[in-house]
Design a binder for these strands. Sequence first.
DNA 1: TTTT
DNA 2: TTTT
Lengths: 131, 131, 131, 131
Amino acid sequence: MNKVILVGRLAQDPEVRYTQSGKAVASFTLAVNRFGGGQGQNSADFIPVVAWEKLAETCGNNLTKGQRVLVEGRLQIRSYETNDGQKRRVAEVVAQSIEFLERKQASGTDAGNIDINSFGKDVFPDEEIPF
Amino acid sequence: MNKVILVGRLAQDPEVRYTQSGKAVASFTLAVNRFGGGQGQNSADFIPVVAWEKLAETCGNNLTKGQRVLVEGRLQIRSYETNDGQKRRVAEVVAQSIEFLERKQASGTDAGNIDINSFGKDVFPDEEIPF
Amino acid sequence: MNKVILVGRLAQDPEVRYTQSGKAVASFTLAVNRFGGGQGQNSADFIPVVAWEKLAETCGNNLTKGQRVLVEGRLQIRSYETNDGQKRRVAEVVAQSIEFLERKQASGTDAGNIDINSFGKDVFPDEEIPF
Amino acid sequence: MNKVILVGRLAQDPEVRYTQSGKAVASFTLAVNRFGGGQGQNSADFIPVVAWEKLAETCGNNLTKGQRVLVEGRLQIRSYETNDGQKRRVAEVVAQSIEFLERKQASGTDAGNIDINSFGKDVFPDEEIPF
DNA sequence: TTTT
DNA sequence: TTTT
């Protein structure tokens, strides 16, 4: 079991890129407010989120900065090497499903939640995230 | 909501340190197997976990390398500066409760699970993790 | 581990009652939409939720029918006897924390989430729910 | 979001039945110990679990009474009518994935966890559970 | 680097 | 109705 559930707001618009084999990858940072923390409500964790394939495209088409979402996924620790040869590790949440808790700005009536899912092997991608 | 639930095995014995004000902090890496990933069961995420105060001490006294546990906590992104002045970010799971899924090696009879909890502000510590 | 996480809307205003020893208990039904189910978005599960003590009072003072919330708690199976002596079992979620995903109707500005928590033994109450 | 995560032991061997259209359904009760409850460790919740199709068959073939598992699923409230025309509601967890936390009795070496999954519409079955 |  |  490797389960992460986050409720927060997009700190920026999602970026959608494509791998060499043509798979879509969306990435964005989620601002997750801390409750109960010492510093009041102004403190947050800024957590990197990635989504693959169909889920990535739905993110690109439907999510914008500031929007509140619920992300369910797994926590992944990825190793990479910097340009000058240093080894680094980066943590990110690989989204399995995203529930929109509010509609995109300038949209029409609030028609309730949308829930989009990504199942199967895309949650364990065997390709590098581009860039 | 910032919730992480992991089942895995300790990749090493927990290290227990103390802050200047005397608070215990335990840290260890949890090896969480990937299921459904392309590379079979031999692939795992190695996830840093920290625990504070009473929970930290229970970890130090009861957990050893290889033991299987369930960790519930929150995902925290922490910023720090390296000795040569670079800014880095590190992700870690701040444990709120740990359930032992098996007893310590060389212990007696299997008397069932133990569940230890850490509540309140220790989950949002206002002190640095020592070292 | 006995963990339940629900996002839904209150199907009715919470009812707050008091045990003989004076503990507050709030109860309400949460309508949780099914996504991916065959019948489109019109299908929902109606799930009984109870909260104790301070959390109960916050529910009574801040939640109304239709409001969207995130509930974290545990699933409890409770046995009771009907007036004519039949044994029945009822399932309910005992809330440990509730996050308000939107403000009460007719409230002021949207000042962001509120998160309320109930920890410790109230999650395993040793008293009957009144009525 | 309708998410349930349970760790417990099978209170009995799973029963596997088949719907009229031939779908497998496994059902069993999970004994989930309460930690932190007033009555010590001897108190538990007995929670009904169902699994569909391939997941159901894997349960039937691999799980036995007393075995410890982790169940991830959704909480469903189902209505039915008794033989004498009374309306009743029953709660059960519809499993989406089950992780074996220990091997079947009389099995060989402990080769680590097994994780089995059930995705898509089987989690929202449109058929009745037989019997 | 960041959201409300 | 129930597990260790």
